[in-house]
Simulated assay, not measured.
Amino acid sequence: MAEEGKVVRYFSRDFEWEELRDEVERNPKFGYHLFPFSLSLSSSSQVAADAEAWRSFHRRHSTGLFFKERRYLLKEFPELTALNDSIHVLEVGCGNGSTSLPILRAKQNVIVYACDCSQDALDKAGEMVASSNFPSIKRQFYPFLLDFSVNRFPDWLLCTACQKSSLEKQSLFTPDASGKAFIRLNGPSFLEAKCCIGGMDYVTLIFTLSAITFQRMSFVIAECMAVLKPGGLLLFRDYGLYDMTMLRFPPEQRVGFREYMRSDGTLSYFFSLDIVRKLFLGAGFIELELEYCCVLSVNHRSGKKMKRVWVHGKFQKPIVGSS
């Protein structure tokens, strides 16, 4: 279902991250980014404020034009279309559907479950999927409201009993609108009693983890681990240390170590490879890939060159009984 006749060319090694690091750390004007920071945003009131800031953000950008479809996604994570079997994907922090849409378009037998703390974002994601050139994908997309930074994923993704028994089989059921009963997929639409859908083959964290407080990141990653099937993959992409946007933040918007707050109250964290590795391996994941993507972007109007840095990672949930 991928668009025909279009070849995606994607470059991620336009410059060396180590050279950028040396350039930044030698420049006195960037010194304040390197200082230790002792204050914390871990209070429950601040976490609530973070979620409300993102809800307000999505209300302001309800047209959905702020986020472009992530066309590079399948090139960077070809695993999403490699399997012939039906697969279940959980997109954490789906926004307006810019990640869900290319996955749905590329594969007919994928079911995408997508959560966000903003109902406005979910509504827009549903509209984007419904208005795509592939009407059938509406039946493959199941958005649900959840502030995943403070709440556990619902049991219908993978219940506690099935987590304990390391359920690996693929389920053909999905929750109905009430979230309590289940409808058989690819078959008659009647309600069935089923404990859960059996877990996810993939979980995506695409520019999501950086939007919550650092103190809540381990909780979110542990929840992602819990709903993955054994052997399932977590696909990660987010802002990297010394990205252009980090260096643009003034000192007064620095609210933590490598953590910044925009004028609208939304957060942005910038990851080093060491921090990402510590977070995911600490949750029990196996590291498959972890690297900086360094892209030189040019403003054709002004001629200004901008050095963008993202972190790319793939992590696997251990298979039960494997060494």
Rank of each mutant, 00 (worst) to 15 (best):
G187M: 03
D123G: 11
I137S: 00
D123A: 15
S178D: 13
D147A: 01
P102S: 09
K180D: 04
C115D: 07
L205V: 10
S118N: 09
A106D: 10
L122K: 01
F173H: 15
M217D: 04
L145E: 00
V150Y: 00
C159F: 09
M217V: 11
T160W: 07
S218P: 05
I221K: 00
G231C: 08
A125K: 03
A226W: 04
A193R: 01
F148C: 07
V112I: 10
C117S: 14
T213S: 15
L205S: 10
G93V: 04
G95A: 14
Y113M: 13
P143Y: 01
C195I: 10
Y142H: 07
L146D: 02
F207I: 12
F173P: 05
S132C: 08
F182K: 01
S166L: 06
R139N: 09
Y202V: 05
Q119M: 14
D201L: 09
A222H: 09
G126K: 03
A125P: 08
V150W: 00
Q163Y: 06
Q170D: 15
L122N: 05
N96I: 11
K107W: 12
S210R: 11
F190L: 02
I197K: 05
I183N: 04
A181V: 00
K138L: 08
D155T: 06
S165P: 01
P135L: 10
C94G: 09
D123V: 12
D116K: 05
D155Y: 05
D201F: 10
F219R: 03
F141P: 00
Q140F: 05
G232H: 09
L145D: 01
I183L: 15
T99N: 15
S189N: 07
D201V: 08
K124S: 11
M200L: 13
F214L: 15
I212G: 00
I212S: 07
T99K: 10
T208H: 12
N109L: 12
Q140T: 05
Y113N: 11
I103A: 14
S178F: 02
F141T: 01
S218C: 03
F207K: 13
L146K: 00
S218F: 03
M200K: 08
S218M: 06
N96V: 11
G95M: 07
V110W: 04
M200S: 13
F153D: 04
P175W: 06
L90G: 13
S149K: 00
L90N: 11
V110I: 13
L146Y: 02
P188E: 13
G198K: 02
L158N: 03
K107P: 14
L172Y: 13
C195Q: 10
F190K: 03
F207T: 14
